[in-house]
Design a protein around this nucleic acid. Sequence first.
DNA 1: ATTATTCGTGCAAACGTTTGCGTAAATTGA
DNA 2: TCAATTTACGCAAACGTTTGCACGAATAAT
Lengths: 337, 337
Amino acid sequence: MMKQATIKDIAQLVGVSASTVSRALKGSPEISEETIKIVQETAKRLNYFPNKAALSLLHFKTRTIGVIVPNLGYSFFSTALEGIEEEASKRGYTVIASQSLESEEKEIRNVIDMKRSGVDGVLISLAQYSSQLNHLLELQSQMPIVLFDRVSDNIHCSKIFVNNTAGAFSAVEHLIKIGCKRIAYMAGPKNLLISNRRKDGYSMSLYRNKMKVDEKLIVHCEFSHTSAMRAALKLLKSKDRPDGIFAISDRVAIGAMAAAKKLNLRIPEDVAIIGFNDEPIAALVSPSLSSVRQPAKVIGQMAAKLLIDQIEADKVFTPVIKSYMTRLSIRESTKRK
Amino acid sequence: MMKQATIKDIAQLVGVSASTVSRALKGSPEISEETIKIVQETAKRLNYFPNKAALSLLHFKTRTIGVIVPNLGYSFFSTALEGIEEEASKRGYTVIASQSLESEEKEIRNVIDMKRSGVDGVLISLAQYSSQLNHLLELQSQMPIVLFDRVSDNIHCSKIFVNNTAGAFSAVEHLIKIGCKRIAYMAGPKNLLISNRRKDGYSMSLYRNKMKVDEKLIVHCEFSHTSAMRAALKLLKSKDRPDGIFAISDRVAIGAMAAAKKLNLRIPEDVAIIGFNDEPIAALVSPSLSSVRQPAKVIGQMAAKLLIDQIEADKVFTPVIKSYMTRLSIRESTKRK
DNA sequence: ATTATTCGTGCAAACGTTTGCGTAAATTGA
DNA sequence: TCAATTTACGCAAACGTTTGCACGAATAAT
């Protein structure tokens, strides 16, 4: 188990002091060309790189950021994490990621762990029922935070997400265009912001097409297959059943597909279905699922960029709200002849 | 932005020296009961916890472990990560995770990042084509590493995985039991150990049932939908097409399902299909996919445990190889009347 | 009353790095 | 030749924590 080389090792080898090595490594002008050359060569030979802990101690910064997401198994989040890591790495930051598994309790524990790890800031996408946001407000009093995707209006900070309203609008417009007359919205938890934004887009589209919003066609469920399927079954069994469903996520949409099949309804002829996120799974189910695509990686990159900008800003930082456009991925589940 | 309280702050408030505070916080017997009490109260009041960087500097340990997996979007890996984080957190360790995205080049960069972050050890599951393992051997000369799931015979370290041979064996036995006469194996890259172990199980089952192994029925593909579908199409178009397919992963199995549908073959009547990993997606596709289930979370926990044990061992640590049993999840894709 | 023991606490060094300041030697200018 | 300047480097402190050692005071033993 080889010990890492330190500045002192180089100093001893070259025969100068540690401070000279430190300066030479950054090519300081007050060090002679010759010394710089030999120090840098020795450093490379010893495979030297600075000890993170020592730097942290000196600068009160760890150059580490935390990420808390509901579940990395959702490809939206693992792809966003990819973007986050890319941006962080580019700027010399390390990322520590953790999953709340949609539990607020676990999210709180994650926040505590992040504090103890001494991160410089945290990127968060909220768990589905996170409503008591005290843990985040408290965290925010100690370090910058940035919310992405699953954000909240009750926290004043930078936020990155897609234009959920517009995304939902385009999905519902698409359903109407292929001939749907009664369109349902399978929403998420009632207090979840993205769920309500998408509901706005849903309503706007109906309104624009002079269709009225029927509250019975708006059902709430959790982000799980069984919860979605149960809700969809109830919806599709009602006498005035919908002939189109816009679901808050692909997994919920797939729950709806399962319900439709159970009731022997044809997709998309009897009921067309469209989801949100455009996860790989959407292309793999049968019939393949239309969906609203989010630029997950870009969202991750931008979220990380804003967080790091804020960490490195010396003056007061004004929160930035940034939203991206979505794109429809049309597949079999909404392809009518 | 509140600064974190330090031992010095407590010392000043209580009116003792920093060393006394340090000892009092751990309830050292050489400090008076009274001092201990007031110090601990003050610490709690100030929300004190020790500065990680300072401890790292002192002990040459960061209490951080790294994790490198092919893709966190595979639920096997995100679930394993869950287990890893649980065990790490229990033992006071922080986890930094990164994805190789199945690219050896990225895996190498990840390894370098890990070294720079100063982790105490690394957990790795290999990218699909990782063959040049120099980066791992070099890493191993500096810190303990543990491989899990996608392991290699060419590295001498602790390894955790499922009994791939037995898992494959049971899957093929199942196919035979439901009446399959010609069973294909859709394998992964040729040098991937888990792929070959599963091939062993496949062959063993055929042998036990007095069926001969036909090399034409063993095809190699990548872990992507298109690669799998292409391979399956070729397989299913051949005149002697198989009536059963055992695939190295669920995604590959789903590629095979797509190919079968394209050729208007019924699943499971014309061709029965079984995958590996039992990802959530297996239950969601239609027909639902039978699969070999791995205890992902337990594997993650055990891998983390072994790594941390090794990090904390003062003497030479003998590598531990541990394998877990799999369980069949039987679904529609192998349910014949 | 004197010495030995125990108890409670503080001092200082160490970990690796940076940086303001000081200083010897080399160079310049007259 | 001597003063003024420049060049090239070293010293020491600081960041937060732990820990071996020392030390004063109180207590116990003689």
